[in-house]
Design a protein around this nucleic acid. Sequence first.
DNA 1: TACTTATTGTCCAATATAGACTTTATCGTC
DNA 2: GACGATAAAGTCTATATTGGACAATAAGTA
Lengths: 207, 207
Amino acid sequence: MTPELQRYSDVCDAIAKLFQPYVEVVLHDLESETAAYIANNFSHRELGEPSLLHEIDFRGGEAVIGPYEKVNWDGRRIKSISVVVRNDKAKAIGVLCINMDVSHFHQLQQVMELLSSVPQNTEKPEALFKEDWHERINEFILSWTWERGVTVETLSRQQKRELVEDLAGQGGFSGKNSANYVARILNLGRATIYNYLKDQKEKSRLS
Amino acid sequence: MTPELQRYSDVCDAIAKLFQPYVEVVLHDLESETAAYIANNFSHRELGEPSLLHEIDFRGGEAVIGPYEKVNWDGRRIKSISVVVRNDKAKAIGVLCINMDVSHFHQLQQVMELLSSVPQNTEKPEALFKEDWHERINEFILSWTWERGVTVETLSRQQKRELVEDLAGQGGFSGKNSANYVARILNLGRATIYNYLKDQKEKSRLS
DNA sequence: TACTTATTGTCCAATATAGACTTTATCGTC
DNA sequence: GACGATAAAGTCTATATTGGACAATAAGTA
């Protein structure tokens, strides 16, 4: 890492530490297009890894880009913002990326939502309306558990299996990485989800 | 269940439904000292089960007793209140017990706490000050994970093992049912906790 | 003391899982 | 639309976890 860029690493540490453990800060080197420094690395990136900066929309030449949303490898949802950082000659030398794990805040929202909202008993499966499939899955699980007077934490294995099968029946696994996402919510392994789905196919084939 | 008591069962349903799924309502028959009705049964009580009402402090002859705290069989913490209910002749015929699962609210508190509080770096292990061992364990896990910039949800098996061993080293398993409690927080089985502890003893014996 | 009940700890067969792997889709480029 | 590069969808297996039953021990209770 160049000394110019080096000086920003402390800034990364400061930001990450203030919001510990909800925030990760990645400093990208624009020269080599790699990750030069990572504070509170929860995305499990490696130093020196290619930055894939082309994913970020630099149009307009703004210094601050975002915020935008990403999904972490393990299904947690991340709110991110990026800043182009410069050396003393005002040359753009890096991009500082702040990634915030908002999964806990979503959870918190759901607890309050469950308490304060009046459930709609419209006959139509309202799970199908939200456009983001994450939301659809959340919605589905929320109402599935609500109807049974339970919460995800208290589901038995059998119940989780049923939930997964029902969700599959509704086409809930069409989104990208949705198996991963559901696995994390239900505290199951990804493999387990696939096992359930396979068993279900097997069962329906036999009947 | 006598018709007199029966009439209260709808009240139970109403209360439970309003706070679904966080509240359970148990109607005890004072005659037989058994559970006569249960709405949203999360304590896994059976109808007709003995009520153990003597646990409740009736001194003073108050109609409303509590609130007081209990711990559910699976380690969730419950805030409860009880009301003596009467028939038309003002004879006490039952006790209506409202049990609220506060574990989700505690969780929520912790998320906010982690965000808003400034960690004390007093050298002394502050885990030892709280008098309730539940709190001590919570505190321990919170600071253990904080130091490593992770959250309980993201702990690997190996990390959970280390956490359990460290906690055991601090005497964290002296409370009643503490193994159960820790298991639930870490999303482990009770058996797994004991496996870890046994392995640890084994290891230290060999070294 | 003896009896009752709750907790601790162990065991095992059934189940889930990390991680490596193969196959299949998706994307970007020409 | 063919090609190569990536990512995601699935599969597989050796190992770890776990529900539930049980035995051993402790803690009340009368």
